[in-house]
Simulated assay, not measured.
Amino acid sequence: MIIRILGQGQYDVADTRIDELNTLDTRLQTAVDAGDTEAFTAALQALVGTVRGLGVRLPDDTLVASELVLPGEDSDLEQVRALLTDEGLIPG
């Protein structure tokens, strides 16, 4: 699956890693719902870092539709809150 991290490019992550990403997404959603800035920052860094670690970065000149879009690590709690759905940032 192709995941875009805003401001950082696209990464190709194996579909088999979706459960791992969903676990991190749930932690992020919990922190946002609680308004816990410290937990939010840690959860967002973990999610974005995991995508970078698991994925293969696509060249900047490659045009591929992203299946998921994640905020960059510099996003604040309110910016991420606006992006969340009932399923978090990652459906499933």
Rank of each mutant, 00 (worst) to 15 (best):
M1Y: 02
M1A: 09
I3M: 10
I3A: 06
R4H: 07
I5L: 07
I5V: 13
L6V: 06
L6F: 03
L6S: 09
G7F: 05
Q8L: 09
G9E: 06
G9P: 04
G9R: 06
G9V: 04
Q10D: 14
D12M: 14
D12N: 11
D12Q: 15
A14E: 15
D15C: 00
T16I: 15
T16S: 15
T16G: 08
R17K: 12
R17M: 13
D19R: 08
D19E: 13
D19A: 10
N22E: 13
N22P: 00
T23R: 11
T23A: 12
T23L: 13
L24Q: 06
T26A: 14
T26E: 14
R27E: 14
R27G: 08
R27D: 13
L28D: 09
Q29V: 14
Q29E: 12
Q29D: 11
T30R: 06
A31V: 06
V32A: 07
G35A: 10
D36H: 12
T37L: 08
T37F: 07
T37G: 10
E38V: 13
A39W: 02
A39Y: 01
A39R: 12
A39D: 11
A39L: 09
A39S: 14
F40D: 05
F40C: 05
F40W: 08
A42N: 13
A42F: 11
A43P: 01
A43I: 02
L44P: 02
Q45W: 10
Q45A: 15
A46T: 04
A46E: 13
L47E: 08
L47V: 04
V48P: 00
G49S: 03
G49F: 00
T50P: 00
T50L: 02
V51R: 09
G53V: 01
G53L: 03
G53M: 03
G53D: 12
L54R: 04
L54A: 05
G55P: 00
G55K: 03
V56F: 04
V56I: 07
V56A: 12
V56E: 13
R57S: 10
R57E: 13
R57T: 03
R57I: 02
P59K: 09
P59Q: 07
D60N: 04
D60E: 10
D60R: 05
D60F: 05
T62S: 11
T62G: 00
L63M: 08
L63N: 10
L63S: 13
A65Y: 04
A65Q: 10
S66W: 01
S66H: 02
E67M: 06
L68S: 01
L68I: 09
L68R: 05
V69Q: 13
L70P: 01
P71K: 02
P71Q: 02
P71G: 04
G72F: 03
E73L: 02
E73T: 12
D74P: 00
D74R: 05
S75L: 04
D76H: 03
D76V: 03
D76Y: 03
D76A: 05
L77E: 00
E78C: 04
E78K: 15
E78M: 14
E78D: 15
Q79A: 14
V80H: 09
V80A: 11
R81V: 04
R81I: 03
R81N: 10
A82N: 11
L83Y: 03
L83W: 05
L84M: 09
T85W: 13
D86I: 08
D86T: 12
D86Y: 11
D86M: 11
E87T: 11
E87M: 10
E87R: 12
G88P: 06
L89I: 06
L89V: 06
I90V: 15
G92Y: 12
